[in-house]
Measured scan of single mutants.
Amino acid sequence: TYTWNTKEEAKQAFKELLKEKRVPSNASWEQAMKMIINDPRYSALAKLSEKKQAFNAYKVQTE
């Protein structure tokens, strides 16, 4: 089980997950979700809006 003390740690864990699963920077949210949804870190960020925000930040960083 994973635990995160801060929102920032949770966001980092979520981005690490995207990186580890090699989600391409041109992937849509739907494509990315299919690649990461079974990992416990997918739940790091509770709100869908937070997940999408972190995903978009990840995409910008990896382009």
Rank of each mutant, 00 (worst) to 15 (best):
Q31C: 11
M33Q: 13
R41F: 01
L45R: 00
K59F: 05
E8T: 06
M35I: 10
M33V: 11
Q53V: 08
T3Q: 14
K15Y: 15
I36A: 02
K52E: 09
E30Q: 10
A54E: 13
K52Y: 07
S25R: 14
W4K: 09
T3S: 08
S43R: 09
S25M: 13
K21P: 01
K59L: 09
L48W: 06
T3G: 08
R22D: 11
Q61E: 13
K52P: 00
S28D: 08
E9N: 03
T3M: 07
T1C: 15
N38L: 11
E30N: 11
K21T: 07
K47G: 10
A57F: 07
L45Q: 01
P24L: 04
E30G: 10
S49Q: 08
Q31F: 10
T3N: 09
K47S: 13
E30F: 10
N56K: 11
I37F: 14
K59A: 09
T6I: 03
Q31G: 08
K59M: 07
K15G: 15
A46Q: 14
E9Y: 03
T62M: 13
M33I: 08
V23A: 01
R41A: 03
N26W: 13
W4N: 07
Q61K: 07
A13S: 07
K15H: 15
A10W: 02
E8D: 07
K21S: 08
A13N: 05
F55P: 01
T62A: 14
W29S: 00
L17I: 03
E63L: 09
E16Q: 10
Q61N: 12
K11N: 15
S49Y: 06
T62Q: 12
N56H: 13
Q31D: 08
I37N: 12
V60Q: 14
F55K: 02
A13C: 12
N56S: 08
R41Q: 02
K11L: 15
F55R: 01
L18I: 05
N56M: 11
E63Q: 12
F55D: 04
S28Q: 07
K34L: 13
L48M: 12
N5Q: 13
F14A: 00
A54L: 06
A54K: 01
V60T: 13
A13L: 07
F14S: 00
D39H: 01
K19G: 11
T1W: 10
K59N: 04
S49E: 12
L48S: 06
K15V: 14
E16S: 08
A54T: 09
E9G: 04
M35T: 06
T1L: 07
Q31P: 02
E20C: 06
P40D: 07
Y42D: 01
E8A: 11
V60R: 13
K7P: 15
K15D: 15
L45W: 01
E63F: 05
K47V: 10
A13P: 01
L17T: 01
W29L: 03
T3P: 15
L18H: 00
Y2H: 15
L18D: 00
I36Q: 00
A54I: 09
K52I: 15
M33T: 07
S43E: 14
L48Y: 07
V60S: 12
K15L: 15
E50L: 03
P40Q: 06
P40A: 07
E16V: 04
A44V: 04
E20P: 00
N26A: 07
A27T: 12
L18P: 00
M33F: 06
P24Q: 04
K47N: 11
E9I: 02
N5D: 09
S25D: 07
R41G: 02
E9D: 06
P24R: 05
I37Y: 11
Y2L: 15
L18T: 00
W29R: 00
E50Q: 07
E9P: 01
A32K: 00
A44S: 09
S25I: 11
N26G: 09
K15P: 00
I36N: 00
V60H: 14
N38T: 10
F55E: 03
E50M: 04
Q61I: 10
Q31L: 13
W4R: 04
E30M: 08
V60D: 07
K21Y: 07
L48I: 12
K51T: 02
W4G: 12
A44Q: 03
A10G: 07
Y2C: 15
T1P: 15
P40G: 06
A44R: 02
P24W: 02
M33W: 05
Y2R: 14
K11M: 15
S25A: 13
P24S: 05
W29D: 01
V23S: 01
E20D: 14
Q53M: 11
K7D: 12
N26E: 10
T6D: 13
S28V: 06
D39M: 01
S43F: 14
T1H: 15
A57S: 10
A32C: 14
W4H: 06
W29F: 10
K11T: 15
A13W: 03
D39A: 01
A27M: 08
K11A: 15
R41D: 01
A54G: 03
S28E: 07
E16P: 00
I37M: 12
M33S: 09
A32E: 00
I36G: 01
A27S: 11
K11I: 15
N26K: 07
E8Y: 08
L48F: 05
M35C: 08
V60F: 12
A27L: 08
S49P: 06
K59W: 05
E8H: 06
T1M: 14
Q61G: 12
I36F: 02
E30P: 12
L45C: 03
S43N: 14
Q61M: 10
N26H: 11
A57D: 13
A57P: 02
K47I: 10
N38Q: 09
T6H: 04
Q53I: 09
K19W: 15
Q31T: 14
L18C: 06
K34M: 13
W29T: 01
S43T: 10
E9H: 03
Q12C: 14
A10N: 04
E16A: 12
E16W: 05
S43P: 06
K52L: 09
K59S: 06
Q12D: 13
K34A: 08
Y58A: 03
E30V: 08
T3Y: 15
K52F: 09
N56Q: 12
F14R: 00
Q12P: 00
S49C: 11
W4S: 08
K19Y: 14
I37R: 10
F14T: 00
E63W: 05
T1Y: 14
E50R: 02
W29P: 01
V23G: 00
W4Q: 06
A54F: 05
K19T: 14
E30Y: 08
Q12M: 07
Q12H: 08
K59R: 09
E50D: 09
E9L: 04
Y58T: 03
Q31W: 06
A57C: 14
E63Y: 05
A10V: 02
W4M: 04
A46H: 11
T62H: 13
A13Y: 05
Y58H: 07
